[in-house]
């Protein structure tokens, strides 16, 4: 740990202010709490909201995992993990079950999180009504009055134009029957993981200066119409090329050896653990045969 920084980079006053915003967010699930987003050593829009949440919540005993689109090895994840490690000296891991604090961009790990784990999501646009109404003063009032015509209208417009809702990610959700919330651009597949989750999820938007939260055991329902129910991404017939997994969120890629289109687990740690388990199982089997 570098000594020329305060523990976890931020000064204690900043951390306290951010923690206060977090507490308010937890107390009002789905409500966007404004906070004074700090200047961070990474650019705004690159995860500064999530980073500030992580730095405010982390303690010396925590074990940190940082993922970007499901991968522990992508540049953003590596940089943020490095920054937090150097300014706190905490242990880092890639294994989901070993982490106590997980900062993630655009995915929720496949392995269900437990009550002892904290999930921090990075949010680019926290306001689900922004395309419907540009003025913050008005959207604040719409939230206060639980007036969510705009969120439904977006979906209606998509159905009218394309015959289906076209939210690839960031499909708006209703939190505990009160606030409509942007779940950060997680795929629709992950929306269900927020519903009645055991863990606390914190969402931070550094550029937009908003913090909000989904406490454990909170009802989170994806918005939909009666005759157009919410559907997640379909991976009918597809399985992970590497570990064979089905029933997980897959991404399409090209096999560099054969040039064929293949599917892979988006959550690389989940995939690695499955490959490892399979190889140790076959090794054990091989040992029995001998």
């Amino acid at each position: 740990m570098r000594k020329n920084y305060n523990f976890a980079f931020l000064d204690e006053g900043s951390k306290r202010e951010i923690r206060r915003a977090i507490l308010k967010g937890v107390a009002i699930p789905g409500y966007q709490v404004p906070f004074a987003s700090r200047e961070m050593p990474i650019g705004r829009g690159w995860g500064t909201g999530g980073l500030q949440l992580t730095l405010s919540c982390i303690g010396p005993d925590d074990t940190l995992k940082v993922i970007d689109q499901g991968s522990d090895a992508s540049v953003n994840a590596v940089s943020i993990r490095g920054l937090v490690r150097e300014t706190t000296g905490v242990e880092t891991t890639t294994a989901t079950q070993e982490a106590t604090l997980i900062q993630s961009r655009h995915r929720i790990p496949e392995r269900p999180l437990t009550r002892d784990q904290l999930l921090v999501l990075q949010v680019p646009t926290p306001e689900p009504l922004r395309t419907y109404e540009a003025r913050e003063t008005v959207t604040k009032r719409l939230h206060a009055e639980a007036e969510y015509t705009g969120a439904y209208l977006e979906l209606f417009e998509q159905i009218v134009r394309y015959g289906t809702t076209t939210t690839g990610a960031d499909h708006p959700v209703m939190v505990e029957g009160r606030y409509v919330m942007a779940p950060s651009p997680i795929p629709r597949y992950d929306n269900a993981k927020l519903d009645m989750a055991e863990n606390l999820t914190l969402l931070g938007a550094g550029r937009e200066k908003k913090i909000y939260a989904v406490p454990p055991y909170t009802h989170v329902e994806s918005l939909a119409f009666d005759d157009y129910p919410f559907v997640t991404e379909e991976f009918e017939g597809a399985h992970c090329h590497r570990c064979g997994a089905t029933g997980v969120y897959l991404t399409q890629t090209v096999d560099p050896a054969t040039g064929e289109q293949i599917w892979m687990c988006s959550d690389t740690d989940y995939c690695d653990q499955r490959v490892e388990a399979a190889s140790s199982a076959s090794a054990a089997k091989g040992g029995d045969a001998r």
């Binding site: 015509t149 439904y152 209208l153 209606f156 119409f225 009666d226 005759d227 157009y228």
Partner: peptide, 15 residues
């Protein structure tokens, strides 16, 4: 959508 907006506001959820 413009025409539907008022209906959505009035609670209609059937496309």
């Amino acid at each position: 959508s413009n025409i539907a907006e008022k209906q959505i506001a009035a609670g209609v959820r059937n496309v």
